[in-house]
Design a protein around this nucleic acid. Sequence first.
DNA 1: CGGGTATTGTTCATTATTGCACGGATACCT
DNA 2: AGGTATCCGTGCAATAATGAACAATACCCG
Lengths: 294, 294
Amino acid sequence: MDNWDEIRTAYQVARCGTVSGAAEVLGVHHATVIRHIDALEARLGVKLFQRHSRGYTATEAGADLLQVAKATDDQFTQLAGRIKGQGEGVSGDLIVTSLEFLSPFLTPVLMAFQEAHAKVTIRFLTGERLFRLEYGEAHVAIRAGEQPDQPDNVVQEFFAMPIRLVASDAYIAKHGMPAGEADLGAHYFVGSDDQDSRAPFNIWMRDNVTPDQQKFLTTASRNVVDAVIAGAGLGFVPDVVMQLHPNLHEVMPAKDEWKVPLWLVTHVDLHRTTKVQACLTHLKDAAKAACPAT
Amino acid sequence: MDNWDEIRTAYQVARCGTVSGAAEVLGVHHATVIRHIDALEARLGVKLFQRHSRGYTATEAGADLLQVAKATDDQFTQLAGRIKGQGEGVSGDLIVTSLEFLSPFLTPVLMAFQEAHAKVTIRFLTGERLFRLEYGEAHVAIRAGEQPDQPDNVVQEFFAMPIRLVASDAYIAKHGMPAGEADLGAHYFVGSDDQDSRAPFNIWMRDNVTPDQQKFLTTASRNVVDAVIAGAGLGFVPDVVMQLHPNLHEVMPAKDEWKVPLWLVTHVDLHRTTKVQACLTHLKDAAKAACPAT
DNA sequence: CGGGTATTGTTCATTATTGCACGGATACCT
DNA sequence: AGGTATCCGTGCAATAATGAACAATACCCG
């Protein structure tokens, strides 16, 4: 049963009882309606209507079709309403993905967004592999580092996240607080296991900290925080993370070069939807509040 | 939500995941599929699919459409099965209409037909007004008299129903059995109230029976039978009716000119259906059995 | 009875849709 | 790394669907 349009035409004829009426409702010429009916009947091998001078009346088969098509029409109308409404409102899933180390910052922000839009469900994905926007795996991605440049992705500046060099109470109790930048040579650092890391603070560390000062190396950025809190050494943590832990203290004023540029990335197909736009606006507001400088 | 064909296209794309696959299933070029999707999305204002190098994946709106369209596809497939099967099988309503006086003959015939085709429901309509085939009021009509000549109606000879001049026991007890055709002038007749009746036996009666012999006139043919049985006079009744009532006796040999030609009439749209064909065949067989002469 | 208005049905010109060919890109396999 | 296969996207020509006009018929109403 192909050609659903002909069914729709037949449905309208069954409703109206006349070809002319159906043609007007459908916005086509009545000759088109006649041809649709003829084609459909020929394909089915059964007459759907009895022709007479006052119009078309449905046979049993036509009445059956009327019932089914009526239900279909309702379904499609509701579907169109849902889809159009969905495009305009903020509801359904909103999938956000980012690097793991942004979780402490993003989680409360996304929670606030969810509370502001009751009908939306937040799915916040972090993971080793990059979730790909073009496969529909996420609506919004927060990426770090160089400006992403993928086709079909629309990229916006988010903000440059300040990174601070901190020490924990546990470390200070053991080794004392560094007196200043010049004193750092006498202290230990929690380093990155990835020697190729292009994070600006890691580059600075490779240039200014000797390998024997780095007695504790981790791969995941989340583990750096844990190591610093445990007192394994000085370490770089995002500003927001430091503020969350009272026992972390800034060792020296953060350098601008340490800042990590963040990007908001969305797929072009979803970028215009109000849901994504609302999310982007919310995120940028949160960034302004957290880091007015940028 | 017009253009159901585009929904069908989108449904197939959602199922296959690729434009090419959907195009093959639908039997159209993949460019057509792309254009359908584009048009549908433009109309809805929402992206149904995310395009990427491996194909199309449905967005939430696309997934919603998939669900609805899947149900629709099932419905239409079932509908097509029902309609096609209905054209081939003998089931559903079968509406037969005739003049009232044929009811005694037709009723047992139609009963047998119903018993032979358990899935069919017989609706036997008689009434003052003519039920019109072109409005779908009946599938098969049995008409009497001149050969009907309406466009869109296919007419077949049924048979010439013998009409007999009979008297009841009650009449004979009162007036005696007429001795022969020559003796009829001394008897009473149950006549027709309709002076313009073109039934051949009524014409014969106007020519051969004086008005004062007709002391009892009725309009409905059914009432003639009742009157004859009651002994109101001699009267013309169909052969089958006489056979049903043992107290009716033929007064004189039936003349050929009295016979009423009957016609089987169907609407051209329904004439080819097996249901109607089966009914026509059954009726003609019954006619042969009841009246082998014709 | 006769004109007016509804309907369906058919033919021809127009329009829109479709199919085809090609280009470009990505993924996969060797 | 390179070749191949598969996919999407777009311009252009062929095709099929559509729309307009006209004919024919039945019905309604005065």
